[in-house]
Nucleic acid binder design. Structure first.
Length: 467
DNA sequence: CTATGGCACGGATT
DNA sequence: AATCCGTGCCATAG
């Protein structure tokens, strides 16, 4: 019976493969749910919660100590421990993939979730009580970054006046992603408008529309809006355009970059990214860092106590527990595999699309998943699954789907966008098509129309000449 | 008559 | 095998 141990640890390959594949195609958010449900239903699985404060059970923003209780994290040295969420710089490696690419790039997987991300920014300006409140608020955010508790409850809980809580909430809202911690999209937008108008000029109409015209705007009833605010249709369109370009009604789903978004429509917003690519210390002179967001804090492992207990179990229970044990170790192994694949994939992508990441859409290179799969010596479907449903945050804070790295038409689309932006008079699709042909892009007239709508650019006769 | 968007087909990609 | 993408044809709007 002792042999079952070995058999259990070494998983049945078909099941292993099947689960690896499904886990691979899951974005972090869903993966987290998956793990949590398994964690609560499977006694063999254990989460050693190194990064959560044992007293207040809140997130630890920095490795080391809890901002609320100032407790050091617990040490754990168990050889069965598997890092689901490696500490910072856990995985650092030289990049020698390209021939003359900078060999300085390094990759590290770190763990950041939204509450932590926000808390890191605001913790310096808060006292201890403020931190407690902030942590409480942040742990009650929904997936869009909106608050799910009322301020009164929080105030009661901490026995403090509501105004204090409001104060904290406001601080949170003004941290990145701007508007996080609001109660609804409208509130988030307003915060963003205020912040933006400190730096740039924002048309008054924008604020008006957000305050009173949300319903009409979301239904794209622009003429009604124009009527309500007694202004021209063009003005309204401009304002709505401004909103979709610069603001984001769902703070947690995406940042709005300084650069314009490829999908200006409200219907297409992306969730919390699976991967963050940024400069070291946000300094463009420094190296690129690729963070692969992992779903959990602490370490996930097979509970060693459970493993021992199974030997003394009654034969009836034994079967059931053996099954649990098997599932647990399978899950852990699959997670490791997922992380590994994601890392290798990202390493490859980043080296190949370096210019695209740093300098923008114009420099994307057309690559296919098939190419990558050859390079990494894995099956095509593996890459497909790894790419599917994932989003990446670029150094300029834009969030794009990972599949954009394989977009064949993005390059032409940016050229097209430039043409229209710099046009003197509105150009028709046919004219644009022939201009593109001169530049070396052979595309049909019909295709130009498609690209145009993909970029959210109005047809020629509705465009006004830009200044 | 011109410009554009919808539908659908075929080839490439996944 | 399923899906995505570019394109041609056609209907419709201006």
């Amino acid at each position: 019976m002792l042999q079952t141990h070995l058999q259990v640890i070494r998983p049945i390959t078909t099941a292993h493969l099947a689960q690896t594949m499904t886990l691979l195609s899951l974005p972090v958010e869903e993966l987290q749910q998956q793990i949590e449900s398994e964690l609560s239903s499977n006694p063999a699985l254990e989460l050693v919660d190194e990064r959560r404060c044992p007293i207040c059970h809140r997130l630890l923003p920095e490795a080391g100590k809890c901002p609320v209780c100032s407790l050091p994290k617990t040490e754990s040295s168990d050889e069965t421990v598997i890092f689901v969420s490696p500490p910072e710089d856990f995985y650092v490696r030289k990049d020698t993939g390209g021939s003359e690419e900078t060999p300085d790039d390094f990759f590290s997987t770190t763990v950041i979730d939204l509450p932590t991300y926000v808390l890191r920014q605001i913790s310096p300006e808060l006292d201890e009580t403020g931190l407690r409140i902030a942590v409480h608020l942040l742990s009650n955010l929904d997936e869009d970054g909106f608050l799910t508790t009322s301020l009164f409850e929080v105030a009661n809980y901490f026995h403090i006046p509501v105004s204090k809580v409001e104060n904290i909430k406001s601080i949170i809202q003004h941290a990145e992603p701007f508007g996080v911690g609001s109660n609804n999209p409208q509130e988030a937008l307003l915060v963003q408008v205020d912040l933006l108008s400190e730096v740039n000029k924002v048309p008054d109409l924008v604020k008006l529309i957000i305050q009173e015209g949300m319903n009409l705007m979301s239904r794209h009833q622009y003429s009604e809006l124009a009527h309500q605010f007694k202004t021209s249709l063009a003005q309204v369109k401009q304002a709505v355009h401004f909103i979709s370009e610069n603001l984001n009604p769902f703070p947690a789903r995406a940042h709005w970059g300084d650069v314009r978004q490829p999908t200006p429509s409200f219907t297409q917003v992306y969730h919390q990214p699976d991967i963050i690519i940024r400069y070291l210390n946000d300094d463009p002179a420094k190296n690129l860092i690729v963070e692969i967001i992992l779903p959990l804090y602490g370490t996930l492992r097979v509970n060693p106590v459970f493993k021992k207990a199974i030997q003394q179990a009654e034969s009836e229970k034994k079967e059931e527990w053996k099954n649990d044990l098997e599932r647990a170790s399978l899950l852990v192994k699959c997670l490791q595999q997922r992380n590994n694949t994601m890392q290798r994939l990202l390493q490859r992508i980043v080296t190949m699309q370096r210019d695209f990441i740093i300098q923008g859409d114009r420099f994307i290179k057309p690559i296919t998943r098939a190419q990558i799969s050859k390079d990494l010596d894995v099956h095509e479907s593996t890459i497909s699954r790894a790419v599917a449903n994932k989003t990446v945050q670029l150094p300029n804070k834009r969030i794009i789907p990972l599949s954009d790295f394989f977009d064949r038409s993005l390059h032409i689309r940016t050229v097209l966008r430039d043409m229209i932006e710099t046009e003197n008079a509105p150009l028709s699709d046919a004219q644009l098509a022939s201009m593109l042909a001169k530049e070396g892009f052979q595309v049909a007239r019909r295709t130009v129309a498609k690209y145009r709508s993909m970029e959210g650019i109005l047809p020629a006769h509705l465009r006004t000449v830009q200044t």
